[in-house]
């Protein structure tokens, strides 16, 4: 709690001004599960999303949120997957990636490295060519390095 006057001190005009200014400062922006839900709704339209078929691989305990190894795969034959979409519920911006598989794509699987601002749930959505949607999510803990630069 910075900005508070010492106990017993008179709350002066200056402090009130600073406090008022503080409320106007934007908080550190973070997405929310609701925001992700809205993005997913925009993606799927009137369709529903089922659990399963897509598998999101992320470590449950993250050593450093700057670089987190992630593998997403779909249990489907080659050519059956249209696209993959990843969202992070508590990152400053919820979208992580949108990937589309063309006619020459092989197995529906991608591997990359992502940033996670804090402990949160990451959601993967697979859109199939038959119009169905599938999802998986991982709730993970992001620890912070003790010695930072």
């Amino acid at each position: 709690m910075t900005g508070l006057p010492p106990r017993g001190a008179c709350v002066g005009r200056r402090f009130l001004l600073i406090a008022a200014a503080g409320t106007l400062l934007p908080a550190i922006a973070a997405a929310s599960p609701v925001q992700v839900a809205v993005l997913i709704r925009r993606l799927i339209g009137d369709a529903t999303v089922s659990e399963g078929r897509v598998k999101l691989d992320l470590p449950v305990l993250v050593e450093n949120g700057n670089t987190v190894a992630m593998t997403v795969s779909v249990d489907a034959p080659i050519g059956a997957v249209h696209s993959l979409h990843i969202f992070a519920e508590a990152n400053p911006l919820p979208e992580v990636l949108h990937a589309t598989f063309g006619p020459r794509a092989g197995v529906p699987r991608i591997q990359t490295r992502i940033r996670l601002a804090t402990s949160q749930t990451v959601v993967a959505i697979a859109r199939m060519r038959d119009g169905t949607f599938w999802q998986d999510s991982v709730e993970l803990l992001v620890t912070l390095a003790a010695c930072i630069d």
């Binding site: 700057n66 979208e95 063309g102 991608i110």
Partner: peptide, 10 residues
Amino acid sequence: FGMDLFPAIA
């Protein structure tokens, strides 16, 4: 293959 990347990519 095509991909849109966001700042959450390391």
